[in-house]
Design a protein around this nucleic acid. Structure first.
Length: 264
DNA sequence: GGGTAATGTGGAA
DNA sequence: TCCACCTTACCCA
């Protein structure tokens, strides 16, 4: 259940709690036993997130690559001596904390070239300071597919999942069915800034809560899985866009762009 | 207790 | 476009 924010949160916490010292790496559940043995006891040099991927650089050029897929989770454990649940695919334990990985789609070990191959497939990540939004703008202008589909394409922009897509498009008033290339420059700039803001906030919170004041988690979003729009109260529209269910308010996110200002 | 969608992705058809 | 896969949560009976 992870969009990019959870990987960045894990990278941040691992940097603070594990990097710079040897890490005990095990596979309680067993399926990562061989990989764990390759890095167990090595010093962790860096923990980095890019999109929905987590890359752990150990000494001797060994790299662990994690992707949580649909069901995976990473749990931070403050007492590293407490035993993990037996289903944990991997445990990374330092002196002050441990991180347990459950149900990842990918959990593998490679060399530095593995890191480069992973990153080469990914577009700019709004959570990374080195992200270049102009690359995303250029990409959008060449696409006829719905912007809601484009936002889920990790090669165009990485780290955005179904919740960030729905919430960011709502916040900027853009309907997910709008063709990518029809977005105005102003709409794109607002979209990029909004993605960066809500994703950064989600790293802080450890959850995606875009709507202030919502008490229960189910109320913390404007349109995602909401029957009614949190802004205007109108019905939320569901449609499959880019292979996933999209959520939008047709009143706050008009399906048609305003008519061009200049017409011959 | 079964069925299935889910904050995801890659590969086959 | 469909299906498989990782696991859990929620729906239904």
């Amino acid at each position: 259940m992870a969009e990019g924010h959870l990987l960045h949160r894990a990278a941040r916490d691992m940097t603070a709690l594990l990097v710079g010292a040897p890490v005990r790496v095990t596979s309680p559940q067993g399926r990562f036993a061989a990989g764990a043995a390759e890095v167990d006891g090595r010093s962790l040099d860096a923990a980095e997130a890019w999109g929905k991927h987590l890359l752990l650089a150990f000494d001797a050029g060994r790299v662990v690559h994690l992707h949580l897929g649909l069901a995976g989770t990473i749990a931070r454990v403050s007492s590293p001596d407490a035993p993990p649940r037996p289903q944990a695919r991997a445990r990374f334990a330092g002196d002050r904390a441990a991180f347990d990985v459950y149900a990842p789609a990918t959990c593998e070990v490679g060399d530095r070239a593995l890191r480069d191959r992973v990153v080469a497939r990914l577009g700019p990540d709004p959570l990374r300071p080195d992200a270049d939004p102009e690359r995303v703008w250029a990409g959008l202008r060449g696409r006829a597919d719905p912007v809601g589909a484009a936002l889920l394409d990790q090669a165009l922009v990485s780290g955005v999942g179904n919740v960030f897509r729905a919430e960011a498009l709502h916040l900027v008033g853009v309907h997910p069915a709008r063709p990518s290339r029809d977005l105005t420059r102003a709409e794109f700039e607002a979209l990029w800034a909004t993605l960066a803001r809500v994703m950064r906030q989600a790293v802080e919170d450890g959850r995606i809560a875009t709507r202030p004041g919502g008490r229960r988690p189910s109320e913390a979003r404007w349109v995602y899985k909401q029957g009614r729009c949190g802004r205007c109260g109108g019905g939320v529209e569901e449609a499959v866009i880019g292979g996933r269910t999209s959520y939008a308010c047709p009143r706050c996110q008009p399906r048609r762009q305003a008519a061009p200002l200049v017409r011959s």
